[in-house]
Design a binder for these strands. Structure first.
Length: 504
RNA sequence: GCGGGAGUAACUCAGCUGGUAGAGUGCCACCUUGCCAAGGUGGAUGUCGAGAGUUCGAAUCUCUUCUCCCGCUCCA
């Protein structure tokens, strides 16, 4: 039974060192979280699993790590400068906040006419939005034009609209002025698009193929909320899969299935994943069609964990020069800044074309949250006590094995345990921990709670000092399995094979 | 940003008709402990989210501010 509330996850994460609030000693910084000793292992393991499935286990995908600081022209031509800046207006009366363009769209023609007249411009939505933003007393203009409060039949008491920019800007170079800025990327995808030519030229890739990247992205969310679900600094795992126009819809469906299967491979149950075919009116500016994978999170219900979008030829087309020669299907803004045509040979005709793009874009942090949710288990034992177990898949577990001496004040046992820890660590399976709390039951529970799949206990039998003098158990250890709590005796010499098999 | 709720030890929380801070769990040390949160002894950690005000005296009352939770709004 997975976690039921976000609070119990937050509490476990803090207590055991998975995730902490950012800048906490100064009261916290909204929308930031830090990954602790166990969190970083879990997160790295999740990313490694994704990377393995994309780059190593397939033959048609290359990796990339592009920079976070991004040229403003990249994000201008990608359409983000325009779409990531929302003009917001508040109603003083109802205390509600609206996007100015949405608000105006819902007004009657008569109101819009009056507004245009007051602003002394044409009755054109985007022109009016721009004019209102530039106007000193736009709130009064809205009132004078009798802009109605939605859902109520009366004129709203409007504030002047303000721009809310979802992209972080930062100054580049020593001189601070209006021109010397760059953006922190709001998605890793653009780094892939602007490197398309570089990758094609350096790897001789032919369609269809993909470029995958894992990295940080930044969005100045209005309301970061729900633990690591919506944060201002987050990590994405994105694949841009380039294919011949016409094959895009089939690839879109193929990737949808592949991605659902992958999430199941990291432990998510199919019942807690829903596919949302995003309605046309909710699509992003670049998308022809998008499937959102929704995961059933605790407290907040089904929310997006990954978006799988058909971005058509919009992005490569937008970043290309001489667009008129490219037969683009997407509507793109003219680009006189780019120095390249982002094309590749059509697999049959060999003519240069702009490929279509299928983009499975997953949130790493949302993935970690989902994996934790699913793994979190409260179990009532036979003796009536409850234990908390993180039933993580072994390849995701932060600690793979804990080596525990049965008695911590017996040098002959602890020395064997320490040596065994080093020996197992050298197998390269991940992090192995030497654990000497001195109380075997406590150590087991602790490792249940952080998801350690196996605990190995070195006892008196191991060193040939068993009570009943059972010499046959010399050089064996107890291996205790996390989920079943079952124990078995394993020869130290067989441990390598045992663990390699179990921890795959 | 608005409305509501909340911030006390690492976690969960008590204390809140103003009188100088507690419990359980956890953590550390030593002893004990021969496999599922055992026991004993000792110990550390709080400017009671922050700042200001009222008061002889504030965790407690007032104001401001920050953070978190819920709702609205936003969510490429």
């Amino acid at each position: 039974m997975p976690a039921e509330t976000m609070d119990e996850l937050v509490s476990l994460c803090k207590r055991r060192g998975f995730i902490f609030p950012g800048s906490e000693v100064y009261g916290g910084l909204q929308g930031t979280y830090d990954y602790g000793p166990l969190g970083v292992e879990l997160k790295n393991n999740l990313k490694a699993a994704w990377w393995r499935s994309m780059i190593y286990e397939r033959d048609d995908i290359e990796g990339l790590d592009s920079s976070i600081l991004t040229h403003k022209l990249v994000l201008r031509h990608s359409g983000h400068e325009a779409t990531f800046t929302d003009p917001l207006v508040d109603s003083r009366e109802s205390k509600k906040r609206y996007r100015l363009d949405h608000l105006l769209k819902d007004q009657t023609p008569a109101v819009l006419e009056m507004l245009a007249a007051r602003l002394e411009i044409d009755n054109n939505l985007s022109a009016m939005v721009a004019a209102l933003l530039a106007h000193e007393d736009a709130g009064s203009v809205l009132k004078a034009a009798r802009v109605l409060e939605p859902g109520e039949n009366k004129v709203g008491d409007w504030t002047s609209p303000r721009l809310f920019n979802m992209m972080f800007k930062t100054t580049v170079g020593p001189v601070v002025n209006d021109e010397n800025y760059a953006y922190l990327r709001p998605e890793t995808a653009q780094g892939i698009f602007v490197n398309f030519k570089n990758v094609v030229d350096s790897t001789a890739r032919k369609l269809p193929f993909g470029i995958a990247q894992i990295g940080k992205s930044f969005r100045n969310e209005i309301t970061p909320r729900n633990f690591i679900f919506r944060v201002r600094e987050f990590e994405q795992m994105e694949l841009e899969f380039f294919c011949t126009p016409g094959t895009d819809e089939a690839w879109h469906d193929t990737w949808l299935e592949a991605r659902i299967a992958w999430w199941q491979s990291v432990g998510l149950s199919r019942e807690r994943i829903q596919v949302l075919d995003v309605p046309r009116e909710d699509l992003s500016h670049y998308s022809k069609r998008t499937y959102d994978l929704m995961y059933h999170y605790p407290s907040i219900g089904f929310e997006e964990i990954e978006g799988i979008a058909n971005r058509t030829d919009f992005d490569l087309g937008s970043h290309s020069k001489n667009q008129d020669s490219l037969n683009l299907t997407a509507r793109v803004e003219p680009n006189t800044d780019s120095t390249e045509k982002l094309t590749i040979a059509h697999p049959e005709t060999q003519k240069p074309i702009v490929p279509f793009v299928i983009e499975p874009s997953a949130g790493v942090d949302r993935g970690v949250l989902a994996v934790l949710t699913e793994a979190f288990t409260k179990q009532t034992l036979e003796n009536g006590e409850t234990r908390i177990v993180l039933k993580l898949r072994p390849h995701l577990a932060p600690i793979k094995v804990a080596v525990i001496p049965l008695a911590k004040n017996r040098e002959e046992i602890t020395s064997v345990a320490r040596a065994l820890k080093q020996r197992i660590q050298a197998l390269g399976l991940g992090r192995i921990l030497y654990e000497d709390t001195g109380n075997i039951g406590k150590a087991y529970r602790r490792h249940d709670e952080i998801g350690t799949p196996y605990c190995i206990t070195v006892d008196f039998d191991t060193i040939g000092q068993g009570k009943d003098g059972a010499v046959s158990l010399t050089d064996t250890v107890t291996v205790r399995e996390r989920d079943s709590m079952a124990q078995q005796r394993v020869k130290i010499s067989d441990l390598e094979g045992f663990l390699r098999e179990k921890l795959r």
